[in-house]
């Protein structure tokens, strides 16, 4: 349970970090909070030659409202996500998910950018990134690009971030009047990885669903949007029949892996239950 030997360098700018990675010929890892990385090093699931500490790069910090977008620096810690008033107001699904992310001590150190770039399919923040329709700002030696969340999560622990690239910030389109949202997860114990979890962001016009993003986690190799369930809601008022119609198709949206303890049929059942509760809650928000 000890990491293999590695060299360590503390970067003070993004350019410095990117160059250190390149100089190490990609045999390197960035470390910020380290709450997911360090266990993988301890278990020797990976053993890079170099750790590049990005935790002291000022541009990766801070939460700012920029017009219709909220820019959240990648180094924003989970406990800050939990309490930040701008995030609560403009990207509320992150705030609602935060108490369910790991345990208090982990939240004191783990970062939002780290969680999203780690892309654990059972994690809350990657799925909420999808539900919020955020865009990810990624820096490379060639410059900066922005990738929509829908194109970001590619496979198990695989994202659009190429080796050596660095997630700089998360840009969230701010919620507006007419938006409703809800988050819930089913876990055996608070802080454990969820058996199934879901966040929903819906836009209503006169009680009719205009747009909706339903993002599940712990039901496949990436966080997943429930596209068929979303389709079942568009243009409809959220009554019991419409909710039931979405529940009827949501199982087909998900791709739970075989698991001795929570087999796919059980996960699909729990997802249906969860979707029903969340849509019921969203319907009541309009009352």
């Amino acid at each position: 349970m000890k990491a293999r030997a590695f060299n360590y360098v503390k970067a003070s700018t993004v350019v410095e970090a990117l160059k250190a990675f390149e100089d190490a010929q990609d045999d390197a890892s960035y470390i910020a909070g380290g709450q997911s990385l360090v266990p993988t090093l301890a278990l020797r699931l990976q053993a890079p030659q170099l750790l590049i500490d990005i935790a002291h790069i000022p541009v990766l910090r801070g939460v700012d409202l920029q017009g219709d977008w909220l820019r959240i620096g990648a180094l924003t810690r989970h406990h800050e996500v939990l309490t930040d008033p701008l995030i609560r107001q403009h990207a509320p699904l992150y705030s609602e998910a935060a108490p369910h992310v790991a345990h208090p001590a982990i939240r004191n150190k783990g970062t939002l950018g780290g969680s999203i770039s780690h892309a654990d399919p059972a994690s809350e923040f990657p799925a909420m990134t999808l539900a919020l329709g955020a865009e990810l700002e990624i820096a490379s030696r060639d410059g900066v690009r922005r990738v929509p969340a829908d194109d970001f999560f590619l496979d198990l622990f695989q994202t659009a971030i190429e080796p050596g690239e660095l997630l700089v910030a998360i840009h969230v389109p701010v919620v507006r009047p007419g938006h409703r949202w809800a988050f819930h997860e089913l876990a055996r114990r608070r802080g454990d990885f969820a058996l199934v979890g879901c966040g929903i962001l819906a836009e209503f016009v006169d009680d009719v669903v205009k747009q909706v993003r339903i993002a599940f986690f712990s039901v496949g190799s990436t966080p997943l949007r429930a596209r068929q369930a979303e389709e079942a809601l568009i243009g409809k008022k959220l009554d019991q029949a419409v909710i039931a119609a979405a529940q009827a198709v949501v199982g087909d949206d998900l791709d739970p892996p075989e698991d001795e303890h929570t087999p796919p049929a059980m996960k699909r059942h729990l997802a249906r239950v969860l979707l029903g509760r969340l849509l019921g809650e969203i319907a009541r928000q309009g009352a």
Partner: peptide
């Protein structure tokens, strides 16, 4: 205990906040 951030036996206060000392390298 676990040395992977699960058991909580290694908690210390770092700059005023409780963290796992097994999930922090001393250089950090």
């Amino acid at each position: 205990g676990c040395e992977m951030g699960v058991c909580g036996a290694c908690l210390v206060i770092l700059d005023g906040r409780v963290v796992h000392s097994c999930l922090t390298f001393a250089v950090q």
